[in-house]
Design a protein around this nucleic acid. Structure first.
Lengths: 218, 218
DNA sequence: ATATAATGTTAGACAAGACTAACAATGAAG
DNA sequence: CTTCATTGTTAGTCTTGTCTAACATTATAT
């Protein structure tokens, strides 16, 4: 059984390794907002536990075991988010912080119950896939809106940032998962885009926003 | 905001102070299964925080503030137990351990939501009163079955032990809250009692069991 | 009324998980 | 290919919450 702290390191490692397998101590340190020497010593303990492979002055890499353990934490997090939205009437911007805590509850039964009550959902309220109980994840091929071209028609499938601030930004514009979008214009200088949200308004989004909107082309 | 450890000390203090206001370090130490010197040093910190009054070599006593904080932890615990049973299909013997963890979640909204979804319940699945959001508790006048006399007719209103083991003992005999009981006999030597459970069987309960069954006379 | 048991306190150690300061290795840029 | 910024490591400290060993006080029992 892993400590709360260890589970948070695992989650960060998995999240950072999704773009290329290797993770530098520095990246991890920034993500966790924990200073490098602390992260470094934790990585040595992780290597002992065979959660990662570690060599001095090299980036670390999750082992198969480490990936699975990390996926289980992500599973608990996303199941919780879904449960909070579906069964407890929370809004999608309210659930991340609470799920950060509940994901560490030590009770397999508790999460099995959630999973069953929700009908074994594949995605959380932010469109992220929920790993199954073996740690396997449904592969999705969404791309950020920022990678789309003028005239592309797409559907908003997920957001890559579940923070309250970002979700409130979308709420204020009544933008929801499933909304259909069309790129009207793209500003090369700053990466901002003009986007028509079908049935709603036409918006201008900064690149920061466009990077977080994960879409699928029609 | 209090740490998980502090919240557990608070709960234990409240629970032990319900029978007479004062709590000895020794009692607290046994309840928490934490050695006396550790408890002693925590009590000094609690005194600093004005959660208790503390004088060397004397029992400690919760202040009004301490009582309220403790009641809030108990509230969160009991709301959680009720939620698990009512909304997540748990059995009453499964919820104590999980609630011991969830009670420490830092999110007032989360517990308000539970409370609302449950319709502001007054009692948890074990018949214990749930303190309201100001820390006030409904007073009940239940007495242990062990205090009853032969021929007394009573209703089982609560259990004073929510451990899985004890509740499984009751499950095995299909005994539920609300069951009507009659005392058929009482053995002075060991305090065991013969009890008729209306509509079910006649049982012999040891004193240990009778002390945990909280009843109301008809 | 004093010996002894029970309870409470002090002092010092340890583990987990954080930090800073200082040093070492790597890599990018001239 | 050497210089300097970035990244990684080592060493030592801190806090929380635990422990044991030893000592102090209070309560109990003859």
């Amino acid at each position: 059984m892993y400590s709360v702290v260890e589970e948070n390191y695992l989650k960060a490692l998995l999240s950072l390794s999704s773009t290329g397998e290797e993770v530098s101590i520095n990246e991890l340190s920034k993500r966790l907002e924990i200073k490098m020497p602390t992260v470094n010593s934790m990585m040595k303990r992780f290597a002992e536990k065979e959660l990662i492979t570690y060599e001095s002055y090299k980036p670390v890499k999750l082992t198969a075991k480490g990936k699975k353990e990390a996926a289980m934490v992500v599973r608990k997090h996303r199941l919780t988010e879904m449960f909070l939205v579906e069964k407890m009437d929370f809004n999608w911007e309210e659930v991340h912080e609470i799920a950060e805590q509940i994901e560490h509850i030590k009770s397999p039964l508790f999460f099995e119950k959630m999973d069953a009550l929700l009908g074994h959902p594949q995605f959380d309220p932010h469109g992220s896939p929920i790993p199954d109980k073996h740690g396997n994840v449904v592969e999705t091929a969404y791309l950020p809106l920022s990678k789309c071209e003028v005239q592309d028609q797409v559907v908003l499938k997920a957001v890559s940032d579940s923070s309250e601030g970002f979700l409130r930004f979308l709420n204020a514009r009544t933008i929801l998962l499933g909304d259909q979008l069309r790129v009207l214009g793209k500003e090369n200088f700053d990466g901002s885009m003009q986007v028509e949200v079908y049935g709603k308004a036409t918006e201008t989004f900064s690149q920061l926003i466009c990077d977080k909107l994960m879409v699928e082309k029609i």
